[in-house]
Design a protein around this nucleic acid. Structure first.
Lengths: 121, 121
DNA sequence: TTTATAATTCTACATTTGTAGAATTAAAAT
DNA sequence: ATTTTAATTCTACAAATGTAGAATTATAAA
């Protein structure tokens, strides 16, 4: 089962904070903040879906992710590539380098990174 | 307004075919194919959302995309980068090169491509 | 001309999603 | 001891989504 848009958003906050109480999560939202029951509902659903867990401290709970950001996005990006770029990462990469406005510096960085990856093969 | 998952799927078929009648779209689906009314509903919704248009031929319609795949994904990938990679394409690129299993050859290709981009700046 | 094909419009309905009020409560602060 | 804070559970509900049956029809094929 998948995270929905707004669940993803919350998940991202949690990834950043690593672990957090509801209050901390809520605080991370820009104004106008959602109702705390909204966050509570999302947390419950995310828990049901198996993406997060928590440690209870009396009445409160400290939530933490069960799924790593990397793993999550691996799946996503790979799905994207499979569905829209005919399963060709190269095609996607090509698209990516052309469509995101990378500066010369960023491109240089990226090149270095790729060199590094090549050496590791 | 956004395309939903299954609308995206259909959109992708249409992008591949460039223009198509309902029958052609339906045929592109793997078995078990959805009901044709399902496709009809999706097409109607996609039309309402402004992603496709059609030319009428008597009773039938030849559908075509109003949005280019590139434009569509630009927005998407950029959204992804903004939301999950702190607005840093480099961070995303790094993630991407490490997480998708690119072969040495593909990495070389990618490098060439980046070189090309750099020259264009 | 009868029949088959491909499509259209309408209606329907279960699920999922976004959002939050009401009631309740444990723990913390005063 | 009383009030405030942070959270929880329950309930609710509109909108979006996935899926498709029923009825209807123009066009093409036999």
């Amino acid at each position: 089962m998948q995270l929905s848009k707004s669940e993803e958003e919350l998940m991202n906050v949690l990834w950043k904070q690593k672990k957090a109480f509801m209050k901390d999560l809520l605080e991370a939202y820009p104004d106008p903040k959602p109702a705390n029951t909204t966050i509570a509902t999302l947390l419950k659903r995310m828990h049901d879906k198996g993406f997060i867990a928590y440690k209870s401290f009396g009445r409160s709970r400290e939530y933490y992710p069960l799924v790593k950001k990397k793993a999550y996005f691996s799946k996503h990006v790979n799905g994207l590539i499979k569905n829209f770029f005919d399963d060709s990462p190269t095609q996607f990469a090509s698209f990516f380098t052309q469509e995101t406005n990378l500066s010369k510096e960023e491109l240089e960085d990226l090149k270095r990174l790729i060199d590094h990856e090549i050496k590791n093969k």
